[in-house]
Design a binder for these strands. Structure first.
Length: 547
RNA sequence: GGGCCCGUAGCUCAGUGGCAGAGCAUCUGACUUUUAAUCAGAGGGUCGAUGGUUCGAAUCCAUCCGGGCUCACCA
């Protein structure tokens, strides 16, 4: 049972998943008979591995689905439909055994041997990759294979209907095609009974009663009569989409804006077949840092794995939630912001009223039950403080942290009661920050070469550190740093007449040893980093191995 | 040519009818033995332009200017 207050707030919310869900509510009202279920569909072309757009589509559809479930008691299903009966047109770059796969161009993906050698076919392999990936995120969905649906006869009735509507479908499709293509176009693609190739050939005649089409093999000149049912024929893409909507009663499917015209055509065909086309909307495409569309074939932009190398899945979900109708650049630089925005939303959630909560992305990311934020410290006035990713990146850069231990030592100094056990998500974020630092920050660092004076001072510092006991405190180390610095040109005279050390000495340390303009208190750094490590760092800097 | 998106501070962007905001950057001050995951403060905008609706417009409508993406092969 859905709480009535929650339902009322959902019906009133302006957050986009609720706006979408209300469209579905209108659709339900428009039906004469009470609907048994509402079906959501996402499509997947398994000629390659799942990419970040696939993730976005499933994530966003799931958000609409959950919003709808908050508004209505009608059951819902999400069908992830894989078009694995498609003929392979191009051999993907990122697979092994390409020379084997190239022998099977034009064949159904589910009849091509798996180049990875693990599954029944290439199509099965890619389907398995999709499912593994969707399962990893805990998406609730049902998987559907086009090959299964076609061969099992599940589409037969709709296919015969499409055959009966052949002229109307052609009348819709032909004006959208160029002259040359329209000569050979057919909505039905017969599977060649001998070669297994999915044929793109004109239909010479058809028999609606028998449920067959007649076509000619352009190479042999031989004609064939093929059943449109039972998996002997596949539909060309756009009519296929329409037939599927009709056959399965799909209520909701979203797609990228590059498919706007295709959705229009398929919707018209769907109506001809006798069904209302699904609701949905066209989301904007993701761009790479240069503003170009991200596509599988180009291999530009970010992959899911790359995102998950530097941040958790929640931040990626937030990115997918935000502004689906705006083209957004998707590359490494957006990750820290997404992580920190996610934390800010999570932190705010507990303080918000119901209407605000429903407009908060974390409500949609976590199906209405976001986890509690991991608070680092609670201040006297009750305000809480969480560690931002930006902060961690800064810390990891100046501390030259290469392991979680070093970073945790800094964190614990600030909040002693916090540990990886009490704050597992923070611990994960520490790991992400270190990777981000290693891959993006460290290569950008500019280590200055030591001058001969500086070289002498650094050698003396290393020697002084070597004389300290292993368990020397940060204060003792800091004292040693000062003692070494009390020499020309760093020596200064303090107001009280004592000898001090100028800023230049510390700047030298950071520029030469850490490649930074600023840094942490050096004694603290050396104590946490380890005296031996610090001496090794000095040694490397003097040998010129850092820059 | 059709469609879609964008234009708000130096930069990146929030902000869908009610006093123009955040982060970063810049500047000032305090504090620490002179080093900052410190604290306090400041400067900085004709919200692309014009017209309209409204008591009230960055926000809604129309037109225009500028920038960009996408489709018109295949999926």
């Amino acid at each position: 049972m859905i709480d009535q207050l929650l339902r009322a707030a959902a019906l009133d919310s302006k957050a986009w998943p609720f706006e979408e869900a209300r469209k579905l509510l209108e659709r339900v009202k428009g039906k004469k008979h009470p609907m048994k279920e509402v079906l959501f569909e996402t499509g997947y072309g398994p000629s390659g591995l799942p990419h970040i757009g696939t993730f976005g589509e499933v994530a966003r559809t799931s958000m609409v689905r959950h919003a709808f479930e908050t508004m209505s008691d009608i059951p819902t299903r999400l069908l992830c439909f894989s078009d694995d009966m498609d003929g392979l047109r191009k051999v993907p770059d990122n697979i092994p055994n390409k020379e084997m796969v190239v022998q099977h161009l034009g064949h159904k993906l589910t009849t091509i041997p798996d180049p990875f050698g693990k599954y029944e076919s290439f199509g099965h392999h890619n389907n398995a990759m999709l499912r593994r990936f969707l399962d990893a995120y805990g998406f609730q969905y049902e998987f559907a294979s086009a090959t299964d649906y076609y061969t099992s006869g599940r589409f037969d009735k709709a296919l015969l209907r499409a055959l009966a509507c052949y002229d109307e479908i052609m009348a819709i499709m032909l004006p959208s095609l160029r002259e040359e293509r329209s000569q050979t176009y057919s909505p039905f693609l017969p599977v060649h009974p001998e070669s297994g190739v999915v044929m793109q050939v004109p239909i010479e005649s058809r028999d609606v009663e028998a449920g067959t089409i007649v076509w000619r093999d352009p190479q042999s000149g031989k004609t064939y009569e093929t059943l449109v049912t039972g998996g002997n024929c596949k539909l060309q893409w756009k009519p296929d989409w329409a037939m599927r909507w009709h056959a399965l009663d799909v209520d909701y499917e979203m797609s990228g804006k590059d498919l706007i015209d295709s959705v229009k055509l398929a919707s018209r065909i769907c109506k001809v077949l006798g069904s209302p086309p699904p609701d949905g909307f066209n989301y904007e495409l993701f761009l790479d840092e240069k503003g170009q569309k991200i596509s599988k074939s180009k291999g530009n932009g970010l992959t899911i794995d790359e995102w998950l190398t530097y941040a958790g899945p929640e931040s990626l979900q937030l990115f997918m939630y935000s502004k689906p109708r705006e083209a957004k650049k998707l590359y490494f630089d957006v990750i820290p912001r997404a992580v920190d925005d996610y934390q800010a939303f999570l932190d705010a959630y507990g303080r918000q009223d119901l209407a605000q909560k429903l407009a908060n992305p974390v409500w949609h990311i976590h199906q209405g039950s976001p986890p509690a934020p991991e608070v680092l410290v609670t201040q006297q006035d009750g305000r809480t403080q969480v560690v931002s990713f930006a902060l961690l990146l800064n810390l990891v850069a100046v501390a030259n942290a290469e392991s979680k231990d070093v970073l945790w030592a800094f964190l614990k100094r600030y909040a002693p009661q916090v540990s990886p056990e009490t704050h597992p998500r923070l611990d994960a974020m520490v790991g992400y920050a270190i990777r981000y630092f290693q891959d993006f920050v460290k290569p950008q660092k500019k280590y200055r070469q030591a001058t001969s004076d500086e070289r002498q001072a650094l050698e003396d510092l290393s020697a002084a550190l070597g004389r300290l006991p292993k368990e020397a405190t940060s204060e003792q180390i800091q004292q040693a740093v000062y003692d070494i610095g009390r020499r020309d040109p760093y020596k200064t005279v303090q107001k009280d007449g004592s000898v001090g050390v100028s800023l230049a000495w510390f700047n030298t340390l950071y520029q030469v040893l850490l490649g930074e303009e600023k840094g942490p208190r050096f004694g603290s750094f050396a104590a946490l980093y380890g005296i031996d490590n610090t001496r090794a760092l000095i040694g490397k800097a003097l040998k010129g191995d850092l820059g």
